[in-house]
Write a protein that binds this DNA or RNA. Structure first.
Lengths: 305, 305
DNA sequence: CTCGGTATTGAAAATACCTTTCAATGGTGA
DNA sequence: TCACCATTGAAAGGTATTTTCAATACCGAG
């Protein structure tokens, strides 16, 4: 193998598209994978886009008590070629906020919140999660995943815990349009099934943390057997992505004591899965449409009895 | 008299404030006082703000067939300290223009919609569903259900098909805070378990149509054995409600060929289930909080290995 | 038509800003 | 405790921007 010197330049670049309005979401998504100083920079940027847009690298470095190098690294991690471009995006964001809507302040759910507040806050947060996810989703990656799935001989989906339910949701729907799909939440069975996959098949791993071994292992096997692999994860830098041909990023809303991460990650994952499904249904419309109405009929009879 | 060299720097500055969105107007106002080359630059800027924002001084100078100096002079005339700041304003303007354009999300998803539209429409629809659900949820009923569940000896949840996943989601979370909860999607097992229930237990049926026999039957049995029964349904007039002490209504968003009802009903059901969960977690905070952090710890270790 | 003066312009120097390198540091696991 | 790797910022190295300045175009008067 040829070893090549890689400039630090592109090493950290994770997100594909420079996000316009999805910046705050992206910061949250990538925050866990950032170093402390980078987090400080990211926080400053997310907290006051307009203010930061007015600063030079040096200024922002001073403000956050870090160095220019760190600022540039952060900009790279957020998906921009350099600080200059991050700054431009920031200016855009600032303009949007100012002209547009409210900055959306979310208070956490407290133990003594009345139930009506709980409903309002949860609904708001999940709406926010949806918006963030949609904004941060790389449509090129999604399109590629859709194409692969639509043409697949067979689709295996891996997910454990809360993600397991999302995996089942996806397969339920894919089955409805006549595709061959399986959800595996048992890691052993997942691996033994993964060895059956070959080129033209598709394997999809769903993991919020991006580091769930039980899900990575079957994806690795599928990858090595030549299947097209897709990762749906909240951590585009996670271990799972090294075996993923296509990466679909879910957004990470902040969690709190009473609102576990599983809640918003699930919302985000489901949206991605829905998009994937509709995309596949579009591509296979000829067969999908009659299959859908057939299953609809079948259920209608079941209810009527 | 002392003659001093005056830098060209501030000579041309005319406008007082850097214009945010009124840039095109400013260009027109100042055009007559501009030299020919400056007019070319101003015209380019007014014509395609987004495009120019992507260019460096040198780029814009080349594009307009002028020099960097002229570009800077034009920026100054427009009221900015230099080209850098004009460029930032341009980026902001571009972002505003773009966001102002409505994505035409009112329409249904069509077979030939590009994938980006699919994402936007789905996200929008699900957001709408959430808002509708939150607005239509009866907090009194929800509060009653929460009280019952928080005090329950045991909680059984019934759901089949897509609702089965929601049932599992709920039980997963309730288990996490130390409650005893089971999800049943097998109607036979559901009924045989329902006969075990008695006063102080809670049975929850989840059905979008409100008429799913497989779910109604176990709820009826639970009801007759004295358990407190809850129905989560999109049809508050459905058959399921006759055995329900508390009714939680989910919203019914319109469906289309490519977007089956299961999609938005699931979103709606999940919100209701989340509210129920958080409510219960609040009431049982003493035991729920340590249980939540314990399960968090357990998972963290699993990922770290 | 020619000349002197002024306005306009761009090439190139100077500067500010951004990016990269690299050595020092601090934390982590063996 | 030691060796190692990740993290960090100082400073070197490049670009982009700004300024200078000389060349040129323009204009009105003689």
């Amino acid at each position: 193998m040829v070893t090549r010197d890689v400039k630090e330049t592109f090493s950290g670049r994770v997100g594909a598209a420079p996000a316009p309005a999805a910046l705050a979401a992206k910061v949250r998504t990538l925050a866990p994978s950032m170093t402390r100083s980078m987090q400080r920079v990211a926080e400053a940027v997310a907290h006051d886009p307009a203010g930061c847009a007015a600063l030079t690298v040096t200024g922002l470095a001073e403000l956050t008590g870090t160095s220019e190098a760190t600022v540039v690294r952060t900009a790279r991690l957020l998906g921009y070629p350099g600080y200059r471009d991050l700054r431009l995006a920031l200016a855009g964001l600032a303009a949007q906020q100012q002209s547009g809507r409210a900055p959306a302040i979310t208070t956490d759910i407290a133990v003594d919140d009345p139930i009506a507040d709980v409903v309002a806050k949860l609904a708001y947060d999940e709406q926010q999660t949806l918006a963030d996810t949609a904004a941060g989703l790389d449509t090129a990656q999604l399109g590629a995943a859709v194409s692969a799935a639509a043409a697949a001989r067979r689709i295996d989906v891996y997910g454990v815990g809360a993600s397991g339910l999302v995996a089942q949701d996806l397969t339920q729907k894919l089955l409805r349009i006549g595709l061959i799909a399986h959800a595996h939440s048992d890691p052993h069975l997942a691996v033994t099934n993964a060895v059956q996959l070959r080129a033209g098949d598709v394997a999809i791993a769903i993991t919020h943390s991006g580091s769930t071994g039980d899900v990575i292992e079957p994806l690795r096997v599928a990858f090595e057997h030549g299947a097209t692999t897709v990762a749906i994860t909240g951590r585009p830098d996670g271990a799972v992505t090294q075996y993923a041909d296509h990466i679909l990023t879910t957004s990470t809303a902040r969690e709190s004591e009473l609102r576990p991460a599983a809640m918003s990650s699930r919302t985000s994952q489901l949206l991605v899965v829905d998009c994937l499904f509709v995309g596949v249904a579009q591509r296979t419309y000829e067969t999908a449409a009659p299959a859908l109405s057939a299953s609809y009929e079948a259920l209608a009879h079941r209810h009527r009895r």
